[in-house]
Amino acid sequence: MTEQSDEGLTIREVRLGATREEGGTREVSYVIGGERDLPFSGDGAGRPLVALEICDDPRFWPPVVRDYVGDLANDTAEWARAAERTYGADLVRLNFTSTKQRGFDAFDAIAATTEEVLAATARPLIVEGSNEPELDSEVFRRCGEAGEGERLLLGTAEADRYRSVAAAALAYGHAVIAQSPIDVNLAKQLNILLRETGVPQDRIVIDPYAGALGYGFEYSYSVMERIRLAALSGDADLAMPMICAPTDTLSVREVREAAPADQEAMAVAWEFYTAYAAIVAGASIVCVRHPLTVERLKAALEG
């Protein structure tokens, strides 16, 4: 049943995080979505959220960030705490990069890290689970279970890889990131697949896949505009808030090969321009990795 109307639609509201009253332990919860028009049209939708990404195995993290955060990179919970309190992120996105290593089987650590990061933070949490399809089932169950009641935003569902994320969302009450490769119709199909699995539409956030600035970002930008326009013109299967997480931004040549003195500035500029453009295209959450980008984005979004 595609629920469509010829009238313009409102983007569905998706709640992230749960306060004590809502069954969790967060000090705040966020509601994203709710737009009725294009970004910056003064429709009163909330400010976009800026998420700082951290990870549980810094070997798989950009050196320019490792250099900046220093020892924090080796203490995931402290890194998360600093993300909120020192760097001012609206929320943390926890990446289980440890699942990238060959023969990974430390599933207990997934649960423990999720719990520690939840304890160290007061705001809603995004958890990026497994990097390996074979690990999905176990990893998503562990982080889903560890975050039960907290209404995590769990990532990432893809067309041929969505069942475990969906199952964790259903079993433990989380929201999911649905990622499709830069294509409006594929984004729609995935949302339909998730709905058929039983995931309620108000627990889906679209990730249209973000290429890095200069490396195909224009495709992502346009597909975000198209998804938003399709939703506003009545396509309920696309009327979800969007998240933008250009994961390769800090690995591009411009950042990697910048002169040492310029590298940090280049990293922040590259992330900033990408994230800000994504917001103009309609993203409700932008994810960045360099702490200084958080500050710059928040300043740009004030006023």
């Binding site: 600035l213 200069g214 970002f217 224009e218 495709y219 930008y221 346009s222 411009e254 910048a258 310029d262 500035a265 280049m266 922040v268 500029a269 590259w270 900033f272 321009y273 453009a277």
Partner: peptide, 20 residues
């Protein structure tokens, strides 16, 4: 503009003005 901003801005402009 500092060089980082200049390079990022010019790259964004190139991206956006590419014929899709």
């Amino acid at each position: 503009l500092a060089s980082a901003s200049r390079e990022a801005a010019l790259t964004l402009r190139q991206n956006i003005y590419t014929d899709p």
